[in-house]
Write a protein that binds this DNA or RNA. Structure first.
Lengths: 138, 138
DNA sequence: CCTTTACACTTGCAAATCGCAAGTAAATAT
DNA sequence: ATATTTACTTGCGATTTGCAAGTGTAAAGG
């Protein structure tokens, strides 16, 4: 039961107590936008996160109720991570990061997603939250 | 000229390369929502960040063009930090964190701001960006 | 049955970062 | 001249990270 230290009661601070590092939101990004759900899939991302850091972050995310861990349907030696509603609710944060990065970090590019976001952010947020919820039930 | 290592070209990742830690967004929060602008003011926040970490983050934020540093109008021994447009554009990220923290971290409370956000997020984003811009010009 | 592979971690260790306390330096105030 | 304010810098032990290698369990192959 990985515990998180709370530095203050400010909601920005408490959010960062859990999400404020270089890796956690990348895991959530992979779940929401790349449909990933297993340890092995998370390791394959372009950013190459270390195995021990991934294991640690998954444990924190699980203990914070942001995702759930269950034995996979096909293999008993495999686990499937799924987003909870608390996890689905991080979509607006990730989308805000995408918009900021795309606008201000010139080398940051994204396929069709950017167009979709620029032509209607709220619609995109709802779409990806719906998709994430459907995946969570599957 | 503090340099930031870019892990990939994904916009979420590049944003986190700069903003992804426990302190950076708290500095920006203090500038946007508490009107702070000096080293001493940042140190007084409830989260009690270490002096060397603050100095480091301010240097990164300045080198990334998120804020500017200038000698204060009243005192030559004092500096004033101001947000650039790139800095003002982090407001939606901070607001997304406020909404998530308030909804999912029970101890995270906020005075009147929450009500304001719930009754119109986009209006609130525009309001605080406008206020931040006005302060940046002052 | 026995061996190999796939998958999900765990461990060990050097390097980087953090948190804390104290010290430095320049500009004001007294 | 002395003290204070403001903004850092420095030193150091503790924590966290990144990298490589090892462990354990379940399925698959021979």
């Amino acid at each position: 039961m990985k515990e998180v230290k709370q530095r203050s009661t400010c909601p920005v601070s408490t959010s960062l107590d859990v999400l404020g590092d270089k890796w956690t939101l990348l895991i959530l990004r992979d779940m929401v936008f790349a449909g990933k759900s297993t340890y092995g899939q998370f390791l394959q991302s372009a950013e190459k996160m270390a195995t021990n850091v991934l294991a640690d972050r998954l444990a924190v995310l699980e203990s914070q109720g942001i995702l759930t861990k269950a034995v996979a349907a096909d293999k008993k030696s495999k686990f499937t991570y799924r987003l909870t509603e608390k996890g689905v609710d991080t979509v607006p944060i990730i989308i805000a990061l995408i918009l900021w990065g795309t606008k201000h970090c010139p080398t940051a590019v994204d396929l069709g997603l950017l167009e979709e976001l620029q032509s209607g952010k709220d619609a995109a947020i709802e779409k990806y939250q719906r998709l994430a919820r459907e995946k969570a039930l599957a």
